[in-house]
């Protein structure tokens, strides 16, 4: 069964087509690696699937619900670890989890049990009552993942979850993703670390300039190169070329507002 179905999904930001008519499926319970150079359209796609961004055209279904017509239903089934850490610095780890849990209308007791469970699983239970603002990036990211898991979602979106973390924390987060996988959670993972994608993913999709240019198992992708000991990085560079990309949007919020000061549907983000 496919837990995510995307059909002809397109998103334009004025003259820029960030996501260009893509279609793909994600099977329930798999780890789906979503790779691509900077500005290829990874985050835009994930934001659309999370109902944070409206598609310009095309459709998508997550956990059986349409992302445009039933966004509220989609939200009940997903967890998101975005590029930016979704935690309040001046709340403690536990307070953060209790607050976000309460937005899902779970009983208070249940939230607390789950919060402690996930904090423990991520080795953050000792820090439950400390302000998140005092944590290192790695610690924050672990609490952030606990937050996304609170509702025990069927689909987890992890947008570069190991970005800027030390090798130890990265390792423990990768192990944790493996763990989730074994428990049957569907994981959509974006990353720039090729070995990470290779290790974790059942299926890898490579997106470039808004289009999916390859989608297969890591093994098949490597075989397709006809080269001995080919790595996923070889595949990636082969497909996307060696030119560096310029990122043209998303980075500076005020630059964004300068172009679209009075909002409207075409606001870049």
């Amino acid at each position: 069964m496919n837990i995510i179905e995307v059909k002809n999904l397109t998103r334009k930001f004025k003259e820029l087509t960030a996501v260009d008519n893509i279609s793909f499926y994600v099977a329930e319970g798999e780890v789906f690696g979503f790779l691509g150079p900077n500005g290829a359209g990874k985050s835009t796609t994930i934001k659309m699937l999370c109902t944070l961004l409206q598609p310009t055209s095309g459709s998508g279904r997550v956990a059986g619900h349409d992302i445009v017509k039933e966004p509220a239903r989609v939200r009940e089934h997903i967890g998101l670890v975005a590029e930016k850490i979704i935690l309040y610095d001046r709340l403690t780890a536990l307070e953060n989890l209790m607050f976000f849990g309460s937005l899902y209308h779970l009983p208070k007791k249940e939230i607390k049990v789950r919060a402690m469970k996930w904090l423990k699983a991520l080795e953050m239970d000792r820090w439950a009552d400390k302000l998140t603002g005092t944590f290192s990036t790695g610690m924050k990211q672990r609490v952030n993942i606990a937050r996304a898991l609170l509702t025990e979602p069927e689909v987890m979106f992890l947008d570069e979850p190991t970005l800027g973390l030390d090798p130890q924390t990265s390792r423990s987060i990768r192990d944790f993703i493996q763990d989730l996988h074994e428990h049957g959670v569907t994981v959509i993972l974006t990353t720039h670390i090729m070995p990470e994608a290779d290790e974790l993913s059942d299926t890898v999709a490579i997106i470039d300039r808004g289009k999916i240019i390859a989608i297969d198992t890591p093994k098949n992708l490597k075989l397709s190169l006809n080269k001995e000991n080919a790595t996923l990085e070889d595949v990636f560079l082969q497909l996307t070329g060696r030119d560096m990309r310029e990122e043209t949007h998303e980075e500076i919020p005020s630059a964004r507002s300068g172009r679209h000061m009075f909002g409207g549907k075409s606001r870049i983000r």
Binding site: L52, R75, I86, Y88
Partner: peptide, 15 residues
């Protein structure tokens, strides 16, 4: 909240 990204956390919650 928009800059920090926490707004996204509120927006993906079923509220």
């Amino acid at each position: 909240e928009r800059e920090a990204g926490t707004m996204d956390g509120l927006l993906i919650a079923p509220v």
